[in-house]
Each structure stands twice: as C-alpha cells, then as structure tokens.
C-alpha cells in the first residue's frame, strides 16, 4: 500500500513537472534553443502568485478560488516576460553557434535568479491555501486536496496549450515554424513574432505551473535550474516537441522521485533524477517518443 501511495504522490507532482517541461520542449522544438532560463519562469510565476495573494489578503494565504483567480494574471505576466526575452535578447543569437544560445539563456537565468535574491531574499516561501478538510482518502490512499487542485491545474494548462497549438491560427503558425522556418516565412508567417509568441506561451504555462508549485512545495529564487534540468530529463525521455511525450515523461519522473524519496531517502531524489538524465542520454539520446530532434545541429 505504501508503494501505491508513493505512486499517487508521484503522479500528482509529476503533472506539474510535465506542465513545466511542455513549454521547454516547445521552445526547443520551435525556436531550436535550450532555454536554460526556463526554470526561472517557474520561479517568477510562483512569486507573482505569491505577491498577488499577499496584496489581496495581506498574507500569502487565501481560499482556493482566490488563489485560482491569480492564475490568469500570472499567465499574462509571464507571457509578456517570455515574449520580451525572446524579442530583446534571445532573437539576437538564433542561428549562431549553439554554445552561444546556451550561454545567453544561462546568463539570463543567473541575472533573473540573482535579482530575485536581491528583491525577495533567498528564503523559501509558500502559499497557504485554506481548506476546511485538507485531505481526502480514496480507497485507502491519502490525497491532499491542494495537490489534486494543482494536478488538475497542470493538466488543464497543458491541455489548453495542446488545443491552442492544434486548433488556432497562431498554433498552426508555430507548428509551421517548427517544421521549416524558411518555408513558413515564404507563406507569409512572421517568424520572429511567432517565435516570440512561442517563448511567451511556454513561459506562461511554466509560470502557471510555478504558482501551483508555490502551494504544494515551496518557491525560492534559486529553484529554477533544477526545474530546467528536470524538463531536460523529461524532454529527452519524451522526445523534442512532443506534448504527449512530455506529459508521460513528467508523470513518470514524478513517480520515480517519490518512490526514491519513499523507499530510499528524500536526499537522493535529485541524484536519481540527474543520473536518470545521464542514463537516458546514453541509451536513447533522441527520446523514446516521436521523431526527436537532430543530434547534429
């Protein structure tokens, strides 16, 4: 029964990892950039929700509805952040050496992270969402209500992103640019704008996930890199640009981490995640799902 409980915990957290990784995979697939500042979008999303709630209630506590009301704002703010980053900085290194693109996003990551420390100190914070009865028990398994809300929120964010890409005109433009930017430009798609929108919506989804993370785990300025690397593990597992792959990968990673924490020790979860990354890169560098990106460019 303990193992079943760990699996449930893992799935609940894993959905959040997946929501973060989906945007990472999207940027990688469409803009062909590993965005090492992706985790900082999660962090900024968490802080945005935290401050909105603090302004509204005076403390970082509130009801579920009040908390959920912050999500659209978080998503909007992070969209703007992502869009602006791509337009002002990242777009200048697209098409140059891969190493320069990595370095510029790493630079952004450090700058945002350190500014956040200056602004909000390095202390961890979390959002307290009040429930009359915090947990429910289903078939002998404990399911904290807030984790369930976060899980649902992550799935909804991922689902909306998926529908957006499949159904809307902008979504089709994004997919066109991911397949062939030159051809997309020839048929009249504004490639630069589309890439910036991709950055924007990826950051928005990551930020939304960050807000949920603030409620069930905690947030602090230096949390970003770990989420970036988890996203990398998930995308390597699921295949570049594949949303179903990222979702499966996220859930699995959550389960692996919770099982490690439950059966070994929570100290070892990160070591296991990073080792998993290395093993995946050795065994299957192009992902288990989908076509995967070309290893060579």
């Amino acid at each position: 029964m303990a193992i079943a409980q760990f699996v449930v915990n893992g799935l609940l957290v894993g959905a959040l990892f997946a929501a973060v990784a989906v945007g990472f995979a999207l940027i990688w697939g469409v803009v062909d950039i590993i965005n090492l500042a992706h985790g900082e979008m999660v962090m900024l999303g968490g802080y945005t929700a935290y401050w909105l709630l603090s302004i509204a209630t005076g403390t970082a506590e509130g009801s579920v509805l009040l908390f959920l009301a912050t999500i659209p704002v978080v998503v909007g703010v992070l969209f703007i952040v992502g869009y602006a980053l791509q337009r002002t900085l990242v777009s200048r290194v697209i098409g140059t050496d891969i190493f320069l693109t990595l370095l510029v996003t790493f630079g952004i990551s450090i700058a945002i992270q350190q500014l956040a420390i200056q602004a909000w100190t390095a202390n961890p914070r979390s959002i307290q969402v009040a429930f009359a009865d915090p947990s429910m028990v289903v078939g002998g398994l404990v399911v904290p209500k807030m984790k369930l809300v976060a899980f649902a929120g992550a799935i909804v964010l991922t689902g909306i992103l998926y529908l957006f890409l499949q159904r809307t005109r902008t979504g089709r433009a994004i997919r066109a640019v991911s397949q062939n930017p030159e051809a997309a430009a020839l048929v009249g798609i504004d490639v630069e704008h589309t890439r910036a929108v991709t950055f924007g919506i990826s950051s928005a989804v990551a930020g939304g996930a960050g807000a949920f993370i603030a409620t069930i785990l905690n947030i602090q300025p230096q949390m970003g890199l770990i989420y970036t690397l988890k996203s990398f593990v998930i995308v390597v597992f699921g295949g570049v640009g594949s949303i179903p792959g990222a979702l499966t990968g996220g859930l699995l990673l959550g389960v692996v981490e919770e099982l490690t924490a439950g059966l070994v020790s929570s100290q070892w979860t990160l070591a296991v995640s990073f080792t998993l990354l290395i093993v995946l890169l050795v065994v299957k560098p192009k992902g288990l799902f989908g076509t995967g990106a070309d290893n060579e460019h």
């Binding site: 990688w28 590993i34 990595l102 690397l229 990160l270 070591a271 990073f274 290395i278 890169l281 050795v282």
Partner: peptide
Amino acid sequence: LRLRGHYFAIATLGILLA
C-alpha cells in the same frame, strides 16, 4: 563525448549536479 551540441552541454551539467 558521444553526444553533440545541446545534449553534450546538458549531459555535462547533469553529471556535475549528480
């Protein structure tokens, strides 16, 4: 060293953190 580009960069970072 069997990996290239993004994969090489991230694998080295992953090993450092592991």
